[in-house]
Deep mutational scan, measured.
Amino acid sequence: NKASVVANQLIPINTALTLIMMKAEVVTPMGIPAEEIPKLVGMQVNRAVPLGTTLMPDKVKNYE
């Protein structure tokens, strides 16, 4: 099972992601793969992401 990116804290809307905000966890359904964490640093979320929520591609601005 592959790990996904999960919010390590509440991430407010329009916040630029940092390493400390994210952790890798095996979750269902799968979100953004954990190996993409370095790519996500500096990207902004387009909505608030509660603690423990899986980061889905549609929650990150300009994620492809």
Rank of each mutant, 00 (worst) to 15 (best):
N1S: 13
N1P: 14
N1D: 15
N1W: 13
K2T: 12
V6E: 01
V6L: 06
V6C: 07
A7Q: 01
A7P: 00
A7H: 03
A7L: 02
A7F: 00
A7T: 06
A7N: 03
N8V: 11
N8C: 11
N8W: 03
Q9S: 07
Q9L: 09
L10T: 13
L10I: 07
P12I: 07
I13S: 10
I13M: 14
I13Q: 11
I13N: 10
I13A: 14
N14L: 09
N14E: 08
N14H: 13
N14Y: 11
T15N: 04
T15P: 05
A16L: 13
A16E: 11
A16P: 13
A16F: 15
L17E: 07
L17I: 12
T18I: 08
T18D: 08
L19R: 11
L19P: 09
M21N: 10
K23Q: 08
A24Y: 05
A24R: 00
A24N: 02
E25F: 09
E25R: 12
E25S: 11
E25N: 07
V26L: 12
V26F: 12
V26R: 10
V26G: 04
V27S: 05
V27E: 04
V27G: 03
V27K: 06
V27A: 04
T28W: 13
T28N: 12
T28I: 12
P29E: 05
M30T: 10
M30E: 12
M30Y: 12
G31S: 02
I32R: 03
I32Y: 03
P33I: 05
A34L: 05
E35S: 13
E35K: 11
E36R: 09
E36N: 10
E36W: 10
I37V: 03
I37M: 12
P38A: 09
K39S: 12
K39D: 11
L40G: 01
L40R: 00
V41S: 00
G42T: 00
Q44V: 14
N46I: 14
N46M: 11
N46V: 14
N46G: 06
R47M: 15
R47T: 15
R47A: 15
R47N: 12
A48H: 11
A48L: 11
V49A: 03
V49T: 05
V49Y: 06
P50T: 08
P50Y: 07
P50D: 09
L51T: 11
L51Y: 14
L51P: 14
G52P: 03
G52Y: 04
G52N: 09
G52M: 02
G52W: 02
T53N: 08
T53V: 12
T53M: 12
T53E: 15
T54M: 05
T54N: 04
L55N: 01
L55Q: 03
L55W: 00
L55V: 06
M56L: 08
M56A: 06
M56G: 07
M56E: 05
P57R: 06
D58N: 11
D58P: 04
D58S: 10
D58I: 05
K59F: 15
V60Q: 03
V60M: 05
V60E: 05
V60H: 02
V60D: 02
K61G: 04
K61T: 11
K61D: 09
N62K: 07
N62F: 11
N62T: 05
Y63L: 06
Y63M: 02
Y63R: 02
E64R: 12
E64P: 12
E64Q: 14
E64C: 15
E64H: 14
